[in-house]
Design a protein around this nucleic acid. Structure first.
Lengths: 343, 343
DNA sequence: TTGAAAGCGCTACCAT
DNA sequence: ATGGTAGCGCTTTCAA
């Protein structure tokens, strides 16, 4: 059972290869191929289970109907859900997604982008490491269609879909302050990423706005790789503050999770002794005791917008740059002292 | 900045196309191309940033260095983690992964497999819907390299990597019984999948083995799409049993999550009034109050083994069938009455 | 209405 | 040590 090609069909039916190609691409009528011939071709093609070779097609047409997706880590729920959405949207338009995880490594991201270009993807969606400015600039220069998501390069004018991180955190700070917190800490990771910088900025600005004390000892920036090990010393520090915290905002869901583990270990009582909010949700946060208040990222919109923008670029070769900043949602739960039910 | 081809290099350097190809593929020495020529080619190729066209290469060689991965849903943590692992392993051997989610639809799975074959993937890794027997058989007949993971067709002799579901549940039942439960319920989904059937079988057999009552009213089989809505009536039923339950085993992590929500709503006290275990873990299960005892699936091993088996097939064209059944782990936590700490 | 020929970019084979 | 030629499977002219 070897592969059958257009040639096999043509030979069998004693007609020419182009005719077969035309018919199989639904252009038979347009080219006025006789109904009879069309029928025979289609019937026989089905019979021997003809399938076109995407390589040959791609080589000829210069398009692959694939879009490349590069994200930091597919096993991170946030990116997995975005990926799913992108895949679904892309499928609607007959595009296949090739994805790979960069693992936050510039070298790997660079290599992945190269390899996807080699594979002739028609466009790229990238949640960049933000350490790859040069290559992104070069993509832009060669006019290759791509959209950045979640992370962007402020100094490079590209299409992107990002989230209003600053306002997201602002919502958290305001809510926590309204819930009665008077000294709010902020646990984040080293602000290499624009998104993280924005969250920090949002924290600082809003703390001032609501008139709470802004102190550097209330802010912790952990290493992305080793945050779990560091969490213990974070709370060592927090627990010895002269002005003790009564609320903490975690800048990512995994920090929140690690923080929860640590607080559980220390027997810190939520929300009585400490209120908390997580930026970015995590399933099961609603199940915890108390349930965790979260800032909700617009995952579906990120995926949908990215595909939308990219496909438009592919179709129209339009060079207009589109930059979308999406707003976060906010789900108040018990970890700030509320007794609000439902998720 | 348009694409450069081997031809461009050849013309510029006034040498032949094949020579350039040879050198760029590192076969210069083997073919005794002069060092000088080699240098010039390599230098110029780098200068103009030559990148080979994977389509042309694939068309010619009949190989794509891609492997296709089909899973039910990339946003399910279980599959996302497997996907990540597969990608990582594949990358080590210079294979790119194309993935798609079948959404448990036979039609979609069929279409995805077809489309991946069109794209000339060298091999497939499939977590099948198990409704696609015909196509799987046809893959086998045409001797196309593929490995099933997580779900297999018992009636079809294929390579696969699955988990010992029966023993996994057996561990749960034994543990729960040892922890003092005397009437254990089982909440599962409709057993269309072999894996789910096995879990049910494991439950039934082990319940008998440990001498507890086996009653059909202790077993619930929910619909995969609507299990959340059904969970409430499950507990309506459970709460009116003449012989009330003191333990429940959930056959999947999402059932466990839904079950937890329902028990929380009803104020059922874990583990005092009810012990519970989840088959398949879920991050944050260790954070809940009480923390949830889980049967742990060997995610990394599934991914590694699948890639391993597939790549071996690709290399050696060996037709020997490899079927791996991996063992689950077990993490006792507080939801069975233990006070064991750490995850 | 259909067919012949060319070519996408690459590599394998056979010459020289 | 290097080059010519052919062909992978398909689509796109252009010609008949």
């Amino acid at each position: 059972m070897k592969k059958v090609s257009i040639k096999d069909i043509a030979e069998h039916l004693k007609i020419s290869v182009p005719t077969v190609s035309l018919v199989l691409n639904g252009r038979g009528d347009e080219k006025r191929i006789s109904k009879d011939t069309q029928q025979r071709i289609i019937k026989y093609a089905k019979e021997i289970q003809y399938r076109p070779n995407a390589f040959a097609k791609g080589l000829k047409k210069g398009r692959s109907e694939m879009i490349g997706l590069i994200i930091p880590d597919i096993s991170d729920a946030f990116y997995a859900r975005i990926a799913r959405r992108i895949e679904k949207e892309a499928a609607k338009h007959h595009y296949t997604v090739i994805y790979s995880s960069s693992e936050e490594s510039q070298e790997r991201e660079e290599e992945l982008i190269r390899s996807m270009l080699d594979r002739q993807v028609d466009g790229l969606i990238i949640a960049s490491t933000q350490k790859n400015k040069k290559q992104i600039e070069s993509l832009k220069k060669m006019n290759f269609p791509f959209v950045l998501i979640d992370r962007h390069y402020p100094e490079v004018e590209t299409d992107y879909v990002i989230v209003d991180n600053k306002e997201g955190i602002a919502k958290a700070v305001r809510h926590m302050s309204n819930s009665g917190a008077s000294n709010i800490g902020f646990v984040s990771i080293t602000p290499e990423l624009e998104a993280i910088k924005e969250r920090l900025a949002g924290y600082k600005e809003t703390i001032k706005e609501v008139g709470l004390p802004l102190s550097s000892s209330n802010i912790k920036e952990l290493n992305r790789q080793t945050y779990e090990a560091q969490m213990s010393s974070v709370f060592d520090d927090f627990c010895t503050l002269s002005n003790p915290l009564d609320g903490i905002i975690f800048a990512t869901h995994y920090l929140a999770t690690a923080g929860l583990r640590e607080m559980k270990k220390r027997g810190i009582l939520l929300p009585q002794e400490m209120k908390m909010i997580s930026y970015d949700q995590f399933s099961a946060f609603d199940l915890l005791e108390p349930s965790i208040t979260v800032v909700k990222q617009p995952i579906e919109e990120i995926g949908d917008s990215a595909v939308d923008i990219l496909l438009n670029k592919l179709k129209s070769r339009d060079t207009k740059i589109i930059q979308k900043v999406l707003q976060t949602g906010f789900i108040p739960r018990e970890s700030c002292g509320e007794s609000i039910r439902n998720s």
